[in-house]
């Protein structure tokens, strides 16, 4: 009950944070020079059309009232028309979001498996050459921006070795599976098109890996240092003294508490991946939300920019809550203190 209480308060607080974010976005959208009504109808429309649009867009009202209208529409899922695609922003987002989600999920999966795997390996073989190689790799991963990884991968794995395709989500000769979830790999499996699944998988490897490299490196570092810290604690020594097999000591007693910092950072990294995807999707011509957001930024398409940022904010906040839940599950102390304070 009290954990539930904690969660409800956390969610209510997040709603307020998102409301605040919407104000920030609204202000950013309004500091832009130029008349939104004029931009909506184009430079050659007569003045009376602009005036009518101004009236329709409530641009003659004071700013707080404008914000009220904007928020009401946003809550209904109506972000207005996109200037670039001339379609409702909401339907644009519905079209582009799954591609980004698929990319971020794959990259999150790679970060979790690669980061924790390398971290455990590094901690298990601490101060040997394996550890040194992993640490060197982690350092390189942390200091290299993802778009540089993307370019290097395109060059080495895509062009020189020709292991993976470097453009888009599917090869041209492959027909896309019927859209169910929008995630092509999943849709292909649902439709039973195994060849399509493999093709989509091959397309997603390089962009997902470019996005994941930084997170893998960071997760490996955190897992290693957290395991190394816990390794010197008394309970590990006593478990070993009791003759519990090393495999169980490592796997059950050491790994679980050591993963707590990794999980919190991993969650934030995955959510932040949506923003880094802005550059990587551009490089791989991946038809996702980030590329859409980038294009709308280039064209000063305010409706689309506001919607994309608000959605990314919502994702970030949600992931944060999920991370809190997972961490509470991993660490009974947090559960208990939350219960006590509630």
């Amino acid at each position: 009950m009290s954990t539930l209480n904690f969660l409800v308060r956390r969610i209510i607080y997040s709603v307020f944070v998102l409301l605040g974010l919407s104000i920030v976005i609204f202000v950013i959208a309004r500091i832009m020079p130029g008349d939104p009504a004029r931009m909506a109808v184009g430079a050659r429309a007569p003045q009376w059309v602009v005036d009518r649009i101004r009236e329709q867009m409530h641009l003659n009202e004071p700013l707080p009232v404008q914000y009220g209208y904007w928020l009401r529409d946003a809550l209904r899922g109506d972000f207005g028309l996109s200037l670039v695609t001339q379609r409702p922003v909401t339907s644009d987002i519905r079209e582009f979001f799954p591609a980004s989600l698929e990319l971020v999920l794959f990259s999150g999966f790679l970060s979790a498996v690669g980061g924790i795997g390398l971290g455990v390996l590094s901690a298990r073989y601490k101060d040997t050459w394996i550890d040194n190689i992993v640490r060197l790799f982690s350092y390189a991963g942390v200091v290299t921006p993802s778009y540089i990884f993307a370019i290097l991968f395109v060059l080495l794995l895509g062009w020189a070795l020709k292991w993976f395709p470097i453009i888009g989500r599917l090869s041209e000769e492959v027909t896309a599976p019927p859209v169910v979830t929008g995630l092509i790999t999943l849709d292909a499996l649902l439709a039973g098109q195994f060849g399509t699944f493999l093709d989509a998988l091959r397309h997603i490897v390089l962009p997902a890996l470019s996005l994941a490299m930084g997170a893998i490196a960071q997760e490996a570092r955190i897992t290693r240092s957290s395991m190394a810290d816990n390794l010197s604690k008394d309970y590990i020594a006593s478990a070993r003294a009791l003759g519990i097999p090393e495999r169980i000591v490592m796997g059950r007693f050491l790994l679980k508490p050591s993963l707590i910092p990794t999980v919190s950072i991993l969650g934030l990294d995955i959510a932040a991946t949506f923003s880094v995807a802005f550059l990587v999707e551009l490089i791989f011509n991946w038809p996702g939300l980030a590329r859409y957001g980038m294009q709308s930024m280039m064209h000063k398409d305010l409706n689309a920019i506001s919607a994309v940022i608000l959605i990314l904010g919502a994702i970030f906040v949600t992931v944060n809550i999920v991370v809190d839940i997972i961490v509470a599950w991993l660490d009974p102390r947090i559960r208990l203190s939350a219960a006590r304070s509630a």
Binding site: V17, L21, I28, M32, S275, K300, I309, G313, V317
Partner: peptide
């Protein structure tokens, strides 16, 4: 601190891109 939380609720790159684009 609540204003700080709002700014921290989105990865800095996105808002920076948005502001710079405007």
């Amino acid at each position: 601190m609540r204003v700080t939380d709002i700014f921290l609720s989105v990865p800095p790159l996105i808002l920076a891109l948005a502001v710079a684009s405007v």
